[in-house]
Amino acid sequence: MQLKVQAFGLLAEIVGNNIIVDKQTDTDSLKKQLAVQFPSLVDIKYAIAVDKKIIAGNTLINEASIIALLPPFSGG
């Protein structure tokens, strides 16, 4: 099973707009997996949304979850 992850802003430049990663059971393990696949993510702070909700802490996910990675940016 695999998960579809959508990335925004600067993160899209690092991981691509839409990526497929191995299925993980929660967002903490997803973060770890992403850091292995894309080492430069380690230095970047970003928010995760699951089913269009910004998560507060570790959150359970399944293959139907819509996952998005949102970076802060400050341009104006």
Binding site: L10, K45, I54, P72, S74, G75
Partner: peptide, 15 residues
């Protein structure tokens, strides 16, 4: 609540 901690200005490029 969206981005709890302030990133370094060097972490993200500006305009």
């Amino acid at each position: 609540d969206l981005f709890p901690q302030q990133p370094n200005n060097e972490e993200v490029p500006n305009c």
